[in-house]
Amino acid sequence: MHTPPDLRPFGGADVYLSSCASRAVLDLIANKWVALVVGALHPQTLRYAELRRRLGGITKKMLTQTLRDLERHGLVRRTVHATVPPQVEYSLTELGTSVSGLMAEIRNWSESHIDEIAAAKLAYAEAEAHRVEAL
């Protein structure tokens, strides 16, 4: 695998360097819940409860944390409507929409290759069991 040269002197980013700010962006978008929240919000606006129902297995704490992180980084817009009780909606910003295609590709790849991954895990476990028996 080819590692690109350090692009910082030319005004570029280099995610392979621990000191590069782009690594924080990679950390954000590589998060499972971020990928799922972005996918759930594309192309629609959802309320908190709707998002929670859509994202099976997410806790209230994790959903709140993920939404705050996405809002902080400019990927999600939080809109509060002055109703009783207040109605809060979440939608993707232009920046969030720009990454949603990438997230969709990762989700699609995951769903398309689940059988291959399961078979590889099984083969690994069987090979590991044979290695242990041989000792």
Rank of each mutant, 00 (worst) to 15 (best):
R72F: 12
T66L: 10
A24Y: 04
K60Y: 07
S112Q: 11
E116F: 02
A125L: 10
A82I: 04
A21I: 08
S98Y: 03
G12E: 12
R77I: 02
G101R: 10
V38H: 02
L51Q: 15
L36C: 03
A82L: 05
I29A: 01
L70M: 06
T97M: 14
S100F: 03
H113C: 06
T93S: 12
L17Y: 03
L36A: 04
T45L: 09
L46R: 14
L92G: 01
E50F: 01
L67V: 11
A49G: 13
F10Q: 00
H2L: 00
Y90G: 03
S19M: 01
V37K: 00
A21R: 06
H81S: 14
Q44F: 04
Y124W: 14
Q87I: 09
K121D: 14
S22D: 06
D14Q: 15
W33F: 15
K121N: 11
R77E: 08
R78F: 07
M103I: 14
E94F: 09
P43T: 13
H81L: 01
G11L: 13
A40Y: 10
N31K: 03
I117T: 09
G39H: 08
S91V: 00
P4A: 14
E105M: 08
S18H: 04
L17Q: 10
G39C: 12
D27S: 08
F10Y: 12
F10G: 01
A120T: 04
H81P: 05
L70V: 07
D115E: 14
A120I: 14
A35F: 02
R8P: 04
L7M: 12
H81E: 13
S19G: 03
A125W: 14
L122M: 05
F10K: 01
L67D: 05
L70H: 03
E89G: 15
A123F: 15
A40P: 13
H113I: 08
